[in-house]
Amino acid sequence: MRAPEDLYREMSRIRHFEETVLDAFPSGVFYGTTHTYLGQEANAVAVLSQRAAGDIVFSNHRCHGHFIAYGGDMRALFAELMGKPTGVCGGKGGSQHLHWKDFYSNGVLGSTAPVATGAALAEKAKGSGAATVIFLGDGALGQGVLYESLNMAALWGAPILFVLEDNAIAQTTPRELALAGDIQARFEAFGIQSTALNSSDVEEIGSAAEPLLGAVRAGEGPRALVVQTVRFGPHSKGDDTRDAHKMAKLRAARDPLEILGARLKADERIKIEAAAKAEVQEAFAQAQKDPEAV
C-alpha cells in the first residue's frame, strides 16, 4: 500500500474538489446536477491506490472521487461539469458519464454491473491480467440486473472486485426502508468471497482490499468488498433530509481525513492540505477560462 501521506493527499484532493463543486454550484458556473463523494473518499483511495496499469474501473453517478483517485485530471473534470469541450467527454457526459483511459461511469444504478463483468471477462479472454473494479452503492442493491451480474461473474470466473459502498441511504430513502436481508450474504450466496467492514479508515479499508484484489489478479474469480461508509453531503445538492444533529456527530466521528490525518505530522498534514487546495483552485480557475462549447 502507498504511504499514508500519499493516501492523505489523494483524499484531500477529492475533498477540496467536491467542496468546490458544491460551493460554486449556486453561482451558475456548473450546469445540471452533481453527486458528491464527501465522506466516502477513503473507499476510492484505498482501492484505487492499489491499481495496476491496465486495470479497469467502473463507477456510478457518484463518480468524481473514483475518477480523481484513478488519476483523472481535475481540470478536465471541472470542465466536464461546466459542459466545456476540454471536459473529460467534451461536455457530453457531464457529472455522471465519464470515460477516460480504462475508467467508465454511467448514471443508472446497477446498470454498470453486467458491463463491468463483460469487461472483466474480455480481459480474461485476452489474458491481459487486468483486474476490473466496480464501485456500487447500497441503492444499486435494488436492481435485478446486479444479481444477474453476480451470478455470471461467479459462474464464469470474472476477474472483478465488487466494491459495495454502503452509505446507508439511497437519495433520501434510508437503507432500512429499501433493503431486506444482509448485504454480504448477497455476495456469498453466489459463491463470491467477500470482506465486510464498517470503516472510514483508508488504511484499514486498503488492508481489506489488498488480498481481495490479489485473489482477483491470481485468477481466483470475483471478490467483493463491502464497506459501511458515511455520505457527508446531500444526495445531489441541498436534498439532505437526514437529522442535522446526527449528521454532525457522524461527520465528527467518521471523517476519513481526520482519521488518517491524526497519524500524520501536523506540519506535514498542513502542507499536503495546502498543496491539494491550491491544485484544486488552479484546476477550477483553468477550467473556468476554457472556451465554452459552441
Binding site: 453486467p114 458491463v115 463483468t117 463483460g118 469487461a119 474480455a122 479472454a125 455470471m152
Partner: peptide
C-alpha cells in the same frame, strides 16, 4: 448463459468496450 437477457447484453457491451 443463464436466463438473464439484460445481463448478457450488458456483458456483451463490456466485452465490446474492451475490444471483442
Amino acid at each position: 448463459s443463464p436466463v438473464s437477457e439484460a445481463g448478457i447484453v450488458g456483458v456483451a457491451g463490456g466485452m465490446a468496450l474492451r475490444g471483442l
